[in-house]
């Protein structure tokens, strides 16, 4: 697990030995495996967190999926385009907040 030391991004206080980051905090090139999908209410969204969670799941953001952040938008590095298993998906960082990645494992992408 020495790869975790190289992760300097915000990791939040998640009690886990894994290096967990939110997909919304990942930068270009970061890859990992989805360990948790669960949207939270940030007060800005027009839809309920549960609805957002289900939309993420329907799009393939599901525990176990492999993700690599491929591209960032021009302004504010937002939105982002990720490889999600064998698909490509674009989403805003706000929607990506509910997706937690374990970046210690190196998925073969």
């Amino acid at each position: 697990m020495n790869a975790s030391s190289s992760v300097t991004l915000e990791t939040q206080a998640v009690p886990s030995p894994l290096a967990l980051i939110r997909l919304s905090d990942a930068r270009k090139g970061v890859s990992g495996r989805v360990v948790k999908v669960g949207a939270e209410d940030d007060g800005y969204g027009a839809i309920e967190p549960d609805e957002l969670e289900r939309r993420l799941l329907e799009m393939g953001f599901v525990e176990g999926a492999r993700i690599k952040l491929l591209y960032e938008g021009f302004i504010g590095r937002d939105p982002i385009a990720v490889r999600l298993d064998d698909m490509r998906v674009a989403l805003r960082r706000r929607e990506a907040r509910g997706v937690w990645l374990d970046v210690t494992t190196e998925p073969a992408l």
Binding site: Y44, G45, A46, V89, L91
Partner: peptide, 15 residues
């Protein structure tokens, strides 16, 4: 009208 609420943007980028 919408009091600042914003819709999610999640979109497949097809091959």
């Amino acid at each position: 009208f919408w009091r600042g609420a914003s819709e999610p943007f999640i979109m497949e980028l097809p091959a």
